[in-house]
Amino acid sequence: MGRYILSRLLQSIPVLILVSVISFGLMKLVPGDPAILIGGPTATPAELDNIRQNLGLDQPFHVQMWRYYAGLVRGDLGTSLLLGKPVLEATLERVPVSLSIAVYSMVLTLLIGLTCGIIAALNRGTWIDQASMVFALIGVSLPNFWLGLMLIVLLSVHLGWLPTGGYVPWQTDVVGWFKTTTMPAVSLALLQVGLLARITRSTMLEVLRQDYIRTARAKGLPEFIVIAKHAFRNVMIPVVTVIGVIFSVLISGSVVVESVFSVPGIGSLLGSAVLRRDYPMIQGGLLLVAASLLMLNLIVDVLYAYFDPRVRYDNRR
């Protein structure tokens, strides 16, 4: 296993290099000048030149590229043009925000998605099945922008239970954290619940048709044990893949949800960087997100071995 992990880590290096090349090249091709955004559309040419000079954007393409890669080798992702702080620092300070909301949202997704999917499969063809799938469909179909605003209107304006937005770190105030992250987590989770519930349902239906389930039932095992011990573990093999994808979506943040709830997370950081053509922030942010997704994929692959004893990554037989 250790050799497998090492090999996967080495394989990720060319992927990250490719991501950096593509992001650097793309940002130079996309029209839009950060100097104009800082100086405003009515800035004079001299003012714009001053800004470009301040930001190092007056340098030729190859010089900028050389500086970027020289920085990368030293572990320096550059400095955000607009925030004026190192990209690594700006991104890392958003990680706890996005991670905590992603974990909260993931817990909700797993609880609701798995439950809905399993209940629907066990009650196939009944109204319970249909109700669960309609709920899942609604979750997938609702635009999270609209859902977020509706949650604000209901839970903040009418009921007064939760603040309209913002973020309180859990280290400062756990209740405040819970209050500020609930609506973003629910908005993000409902979108993913539908996906997870549908996959869980179809996988569960497939598993329930297997011989070993029939055997377990024939042995007279209680239905709960059949489902929890024999079916559930096998359902989790394909579901883990989906969970990995869902978590990667949640952790890279949702620009829309973070914007609606004024959450200073990674999604909002990268979204603003794109809109404001903050090249170093976009390049560095994408690189860090790519690295975290590669790690996540590795974790998912390792988890396969836990859920399916047939999966072994060592070459030795």
Binding site: L149, V153, S156, V157, P163, T164, G165, F261, S262
Partner: peptide, 18 residues
């Protein structure tokens, strides 16, 4: 100064007194 880019959220926060 709270950064609230979404207009609906600004209005909601004003209504709730936040």
């Amino acid at each position: 100064f709270r950064i609230v880019t979404e207009a609906g959220a600004r209005v909601a926060g004003l209504e709730t007194g936040e």
